[in-house]
Every structure is written in structure tokens, then in C-alpha cells.
Simulated assay, not measured.
Amino acid sequence: EAHSARGMSWDEIDEHARNYLLSLLALGFDAEEGELYRQSDNRAVQDLGFELGSKANFSEFEAIYGFDGETNISHMQSVVTQTADILYPQLVDEPKPTVIPVGPDQDPHVRLTRDLATRVRYFKVSEAFASFELDDDERRLVRAAYDALADDADDAETDVRCEDAADWLADYEPPEADRESVDLTAAKQSALDKLRAGGKEPLRPRVRFFDRNATEE
């Protein structure tokens, strides 16, 4: 980006990169525990950027970054390479939460990265309450059960169990507005089946990351 958009020479870029790295190390970054790489030398990042770029379109770049007919291709390529930088940690081990040290002004870029990750089926994030999967309607019902039971629990992290939620949900009647908008009868029965199968498994809100390209191997 510095070269394609701001016209910096490669020597200037190398000097800036060196200063950034020295600052990073001075702040306590452990180069043995972490990983430092040069974008142009990291084939995995380049390949990931190419895949992400195949799911992006010019209208998005135009809306987010103000690109127009005068924007050069290298500048656009730098954007998808930066999205690959953000997602690169997911390649190292497995899909996982990642902290991205950027300022508030970079929020649109992070949102684009999230959307591109979903489009290439790289990973998906969803709300969960236990080890089993829930669809949107089931999740609404289980959320209602959890909220009701957590209010009376001494420790909501450990005291709310799937079987307790099943007992509560069995007698629960959703509000009329909810019953009209979705088929909660079927959702209630399937949620009850899953909660009863969960038994004494703790029930609590959590975020689940899925590797959507995973295979059985």
C-alpha cells in the first residue's frame, strides 16, 4: 500500500518497517513465540489474499475506500493482502478469536475482512449455549430459558444445566408476537430434545468459531 498508494520507495518502506519492528520488540513482542514476516515473501498470505480477492468487488472498494477509475490495481491488491494479514493467524493453527490492533478508523476494513472470510467459507462465528448446534429459532428459546434460570442461580456459569433449561422450556409459552412470526412449535420440540440430550452439561452463552472448510481428515 505504501508503494502503490503513497509512492514510497522500497528503501523508504524497508526503513519504516525496521523502525516499526524495533518499536514492536521494545514493547515486549517475543519474536520466538510469535511470527514476523514480509508480505511479499509469505506465500500463504499471498495465496489467501488471492482467494479473498475473488470474493470482493469494485463497488465495495468504491464505497469503503473511495476508489474510482483512477485507482491503480496494485492499490486494490494491497487491500486484499491486508485482509489476508488479518486472517493469517487462522491458517497457523485453526479458527480462533484474534485481536487486531487497529484504530477505530479501520473498522470498515475489519468488517470487510469478516465478510470476505464468510464468503470464502473460511470460518463462521455463531452464538452457542452448549456443545450442540442450535438454529436461530431454537437459540431464541434457549436464550429465554437461560436468562430466566440465570437470574435465580448463585453462579450462572456453572449452576444452569441443560436439563434444567429443558424443564423450564417445557412449560414456556412464547409471546404471541413471536408465535406469529416463526414456527416456534417445531423449534420448541427440537430445542427440548437437544437440551434433554445435553443432560447435566452446563448451559451458558459462548461464541463458537467454525472451520467451514474442514474435512473429516
Rank of each mutant, 00 (worst) to 15 (best):
A2T: 11
S4G: 06
S9C: 00
E12W: 02
I13Y: 10
D14W: 08
E15H: 08
H16F: 12
R18T: 10
R18Y: 09
L22V: 13
S23D: 13
L25P: 03
F29G: 00
D30T: 05
E32Y: 11
E33Q: 12
E33M: 11
S40M: 09
D41I: 02
N42I: 04
R43F: 02
R43W: 04
Q46N: 08
Q46F: 03
D47G: 12
F50M: 15
E51M: 08
G53N: 03
G53Y: 02
F58V: 03
S59L: 01
E60G: 09
E60N: 11
A63Q: 02
G66R: 04
F67A: 07
F67M: 04
I73E: 15
I73F: 15
M76I: 10
Q77K: 09
V79Y: 02
T83S: 04
T83C: 06
T83Y: 02
A84R: 00
A84G: 00
L87T: 12
Q90F: 05
V92Q: 13
E94C: 11
E94Y: 15
P97A: 02
P97G: 01
P97R: 04
V99T: 13
P101A: 07
P104H: 13
Q106N: 07
Q106D: 07
P108W: 00
H109I: 04
V110R: 00
R111P: 00
L112W: 01
R114S: 06
D115R: 15
T118H: 12
R119S: 02
V120A: 10
V125K: 01
A128R: 10
S131W: 07
S131T: 09
F132H: 07
D137C: 01
D137R: 08
R140F: 11
R140V: 08
R140P: 03
R140H: 10
L141A: 01
A144S: 09
D151I: 13
D152P: 08
D155Q: 03
A156S: 09
T158D: 14
T158G: 06
R161P: 00
D164L: 13
D164G: 15
A165K: 02
A166N: 03
D171H: 07
P174Q: 12
E176V: 13
E176D: 14
S181F: 04
V182F: 10
D183W: 13
L184M: 10
T185I: 11
K188V: 03
K188D: 06
S190C: 09
A191G: 07
A191N: 05
D193H: 10
G199T: 08
K200S: 12
K200D: 15
P205C: 11
R208V: 13
F209P: 01
R212Y: 09
N213F: 02
A214Q: 14
T215M: 14
E216I: 15
